[in-house]
Simulated scan of single mutants.
Amino acid sequence: MKPIVFCLLAFFMIHAASAQTKTFAEQLGYPAGKKVIIMHVDDAGMSYDSNEGALKAIHDGVATSVSVMMPCGWVPGFVHILKKYPEIDAGLHLTLTSEWKEYRWGPLAGKPTVKGLVDAEGAMWPSVADVVKHATADEVEAEIRAQLERARTMGFEPTHLDSHMGTLFATPAFIERYVKVGMEEKIPVMFPGGHNTAIRVDERMNDAMFAMTQTIGKQLWQAGLPVLDDLHNVSYGWKLPEGTPATKENLQNFKTQKYIEGLKNLKPGLTMVIMHCTDPTEVFPIISGSTQTREGDLLAMLDPKLKAYIEKEGIILTTWREAMQRRGKVK
Rank of each mutant, 00 (worst) to 15 (best):
F174K: 02
F174A: 08
I175W: 03
I175P: 00
E176I: 02
R177H: 01
Y178Q: 09
V179D: 06
V179I: 15
K180D: 13
K180P: 02
K180H: 12
V181D: 10
G182L: 02
G182Q: 07
G182F: 03
M183P: 02
M183Q: 12
E184D: 14
E184Y: 02
E185L: 03
E185P: 02
E185S: 14
I187R: 08
I187M: 09
I187P: 03
I187F: 06
P188G: 15
P188F: 15
V189S: 09
V189T: 10
V189H: 10
M190D: 10
M190C: 15
F191D: 13
F191A: 15
F191W: 14
P192W: 14
G193R: 05
G193T: 05
G194A: 10
H195W: 09
H195Y: 10
N196C: 15
A198D: 01
A198L: 01
I199W: 01
I199D: 03
R200Q: 15
R200F: 00
R200S: 15
V201H: 09
D202L: 12
D202E: 14
E203Q: 15
E203R: 15
M205P: 00
M205R: 11
N206L: 04
N206Q: 10
D207H: 08
A208W: 00
A208S: 12
M209D: 13
M209L: 13
F210S: 13
F210P: 02
A211L: 02
A211F: 03
A211V: 03
T213N: 14
T215L: 11
T215E: 15
T215M: 08
I216T: 14
I216S: 08
G217E: 00
G217Q: 04
K218Y: 01
Q219S: 13
Q219N: 11
Q219C: 03
Q219A: 12
W221M: 06
W221C: 07
W221L: 10
W221I: 05
Q222H: 07
Q222G: 04
A223T: 03
A223S: 05
A223L: 01
L225Q: 08
L225T: 07
L225S: 06
L225V: 06
P226Q: 11
V227A: 04
V227N: 01
V227P: 00
L228M: 13
L228D: 10
D229M: 04
D230T: 08
D230H: 01
L231F: 11
L231P: 00
